[in-house]
Amino acid sequence: MTRQRGALFPYIIWIALFVIAPIALVVYYSMLDLSGNFTLANYKSFFTPVYLKMTLTSFWYAFLITLFTLIIAYPTAYLLTKTKHKQLWLMLIIIPSWINLLLKTYAFIGIFGLYGPINAFIEIFGLEPKQILFTDFSFIFVSVYIFIPFMIIPIFNSLDKLNPTLIYAARDLGASGFTTFRRVIFPLTIDGVKSGIQVTFIPALSLFMITRLIAGNQVITLGTAIEQQFLVSQNWGMGSTIAVFLILSMVLIMFLTGQKKGGRVR
């Protein structure tokens, strides 16, 4: 027993230093005002229409981004498991995520621009060039594009592990394709979907750079507000308060999408 504890020691230090201490600091700073006095005023100002509306938009856009990512990622992952060289295909999908996020975002500024390739394509059909950049459509599109690989990997893994005989059994027992999917495939891969949702929804909630570069601040999320409080107003208290709410909502999401206790035996 003592030996086991000794082996755990580095991890306990690690968690204390890099998980618990930062969160404690965030909570501590959130209760300080500009001159360093202890106060709850930051929390009071969070519960004003501006920040509540911001929270609402953050959640709404994060929801949309996750939804579209899932709609695209699930069938893709499913088809991937059916291909011959599935590891190769998976690799091809993952490679773009190795490129720096900022570079990809800048590329989209060019692609979506009034004189960019998309509008050039639209003009072939004699249509007027459209304003694509700086709309909520472009914001969601780029975010979905960025998150797709992160959603595909866990879903692919759980689909890949799925025992095909279960599907044959369902078909033999007369289930239609849709019923098989609804009653057999989807329930057995729900864990992959849940972790996919976690790795998409949570970062989507705090996106900030894309809101400026692609959405031109037409979309304001909690992430943008935190960035501004820290870098521009240098009001660490308010920035931390928003961060506290962000952390709380992430805990909530983890809780809602978490695996059931005890877990399934595989």
């Binding site: 501006v50 938009t57 601040n217 304001i220 521009v232 107003s233 240098q234 009001n235 308010m238």
Partner: peptide
């Protein structure tokens, strides 16, 4: 000063929020 700079930022955020 930090207090008024903060207020400028609050109003600026309010304006930004009205864009959507």
């Amino acid at each position: 000063g930090p207090e008024w700079l903060g207020k400028y930022n609050e109003y600026f955020i309010k304006f930004k929020m009205s864009l959507n």
